[in-house]
Nucleic acid binder design. Structure first.
Lengths: 136, 136
DNA sequence: TTATTATGTTATAATCATTCTAAATTAGAA
DNA sequence: TTCTAATTTAGAATGATTATAACATAATAA
């Protein structure tokens, strides 16, 4: 009952498997990452179900869709406002939990009504740094 | 000669047309925006040429590829470091020329070597604000 | 329960952005 | 002017995502 109250949607086995995979997942997975993982348990699972479920989860604000990767959408079950630290070599994404109060001047605002901001930090992750060194 | 020295690549009519379209373009166009605009002048122009040209321009650091839009890549000929103000309703993108010196603490850095940052401001542009009002 | 209805799942086809391929063309160097 | 590597082209291929329609299942009411 408690899950049902949390999610306000029918909790089918497929959806539960997807939710379980997403729960606490910090990897910012793509639809195909999710499909691959979940279809090991549920081989009959369809790709369409992954997309449908992500769509309703997004509609109910249980996941956020990221456009960090220009190849594919990635999804984030972490709804707390946060920012990202992105490895330019392997595209790994790490969360940064901090609030940046960034203000724009009137002339920078161009008449927009501003509702939020998101910061991407770019760099090289420790793994890729090690990889580089070993190539020298 | 001067263009050739600037771009360090063969300057075909197709490439010149694409460069002319991009010059000073602040709309952050997608490949198909570019194709549509340029193929009016050069009807024989191929989509592949647009992608090829964007690819070599990116390689030579004459345009930057943006992953702001999860539907398609968008391209920015403005190479000065800058940030974006994005309309959540019509996806218009406006440049913000300011430097934000954002520092992460060691514990926030997770061992990454940080090379830069980019801020997206989200909101509603003046046009869409007007559109809303007229619907009431 | 059982019947009814609404919603979810599935396989498959369709779409759209992007990349690849191989043949024909051309810019720029010699 | 000639030559060659780089570029362009149409079209096929790929990969992510969305749409469709038949089928299955969960929620609801009798």
């Amino acid at each position: 009952m408690t899950l049902k109250k949390t999610y306000h949607m029918k909790l089918t086995p497929q959806r539960l498997a997807i939710l379980e995979y997403l729960e606490g997942n910090k990897a910012h997975p793509s639809a195909s990452d999710i499909y691959k993982a979940v279809s090991e348990k549920y081989p009959m699972m369809s790709f369409a179900t992954v997309y449908n479920t992500l769509d309703t989860l997004r509609g109910k604000k249980h996941v956020r869709e990221l456009s960090i990767d220009s190849q594919k959408k990635r999804f984030d079950p972490n709804l707390k406002p946060h920012h990202h630290l992105i490895c330019l070599e392997c595209r790994a994404i790490t969360d940064v939990h901090r609030n940046f109060a960034l203000d724009l001047t009137d002339s920078e605002r161009f008449g927009y009504e501003i509702t939020g901001n998101h910061v991407d930090f770019y760099g090289v992750c420790p793994k890729c740094k090690r990889g580089r060194r070993s190539k020298i």
